[in-house]
Design a protein around this nucleic acid. Structure first.
Lengths: 189, 189
DNA sequence: AAAGCATTGTACCAATCGGTAAACAATTTA
DNA sequence: TAAATTGTTTACCGATTGGTACAATGCTTT
């Protein structure tokens, strides 16, 4: 047999795109076997828990990415403005300039929300918290920082939906650049 | 037989909540029959096209609501500031202070997106257009009005996702009030 | 080369999927 | 009151769902 060397990591990356495109309920096992090229045997070998474990693995992978590439940088960077720059450029490339949806948001707005509520909540909570702390270090008052962080984290999700809905990925970049400007310019308001 | 007098209008309202809660793929016919109390026969009597026609009817209903309660007011109000006030308070109550999702957004981020792309696109396009025009009438420069409208329409979607994800409906109101302030205060920037 | 584990294809399962058919009851129209 | 019309129930359809079982194959280690 072919032994196509599907590393678990690669499988997770493929699964992520499938869930993004079709949602949790829309990603049937037959669709998954087709798109990944792996039979059910292989899939259930990697993820004995089935579809739910696949989605969990994908969410954990995404969470880890944001943790190292965004949250940690927000917390540890010496210059808060640098951290903000890094965050926005990282987000822009992660979401492929508005062509890719956020799986956390996709699942949050689906019937599968309850099943993954913990992961979703942790992702948004931490992002908001770390961003707010960075804004404080950049000179914003505590209350303004919290509110602005909320606006930015939500705004990114909305910008993704807008871009997809309008069929205009550019909308994402336009909104993001405004959010970024608000973080960098007038934090002392 | 019972003839429970389910007006098509009432059925659509129930369907809307079901699609909102479970997404398009997650709303199975058995779930729909259970939640509406109508058997398949009745359902297919009202919507011969099945699930797709049900979703289309719901989207058309939502579109009509926003058209009369938001878009038309943005276009026709004498005082643009009043129109903006009306829009934000209408949106706040329509989305039940952040406890209700936007079905347009829900479907836009699901695998069913392609099937309803036209309706979704029309909804967001018109909202953005009418809001931008109102902002111009309120004194904002053309380019700023367009960008701000985009930010607001997207921001509302993001605020809904954030509220649901954090399990904190209040997040919706907090973001909305900031967006509103930006529309009313500094449009001439 | 033998053994043992990791991986894979295939066949199968009960349950559910969206949808159809048609007999039937309630209501409206004539 | 009789005939259409409208609404509802029920049983059924083939297809697909997520999941299991297992034999067969590849690779690695000895």
């Amino acid at each position: 047999m072919s032994r196509v060397v599907a590393e678990r990591k690669d499988v997770i990356a493929m699964l992520a795109e499938i869930f993004r495109e079709h949602g949790y309920d829309g990603a049937s096992l037959s669709l998954i076997t087709e798109k990944t090229g792996l039979g059910k045997g292989s899939l259930y070998h990697f993820f004995p828990g089935g579809k739910e474990e696949m989605a969990e693995a994908v969410l954990a992978d995404i969470d880890a990415w944001f943790r190292t590439h965004v949250f940690d940088i927000l917390r540890n960077a010496e210059d808060p403005d640098d951290a903000l720059e890094t965050m926005f450029s990282g987000v822009d490339s992660y979401f492929r300039q508005g062509r890719r949806l956020c799986l956390m948001g996709v699942i949050a707005t689906s019937g599968a929300h309850d099943r993954f509520a913990r992961e979703i909540n942790g992702y948004f909570t931490d992002w908001r918290t770390d961003l707010a702390a960075t804004l404080v270090r950049a000179g914003a008052p505590e209350t303004e920082a919290t509110a602005l962080a909320e606006e930015v984290v939500g705004g990114i999700q909305g910008a993704l939906i807008l871009a997809r809905s309008l069929g205009d990925p550019g909308a994402f970049g336009r909104v993001i650049s405004r959010l970024k400007a608000r973080c960098l310019n007038a934090p002392a308001a």
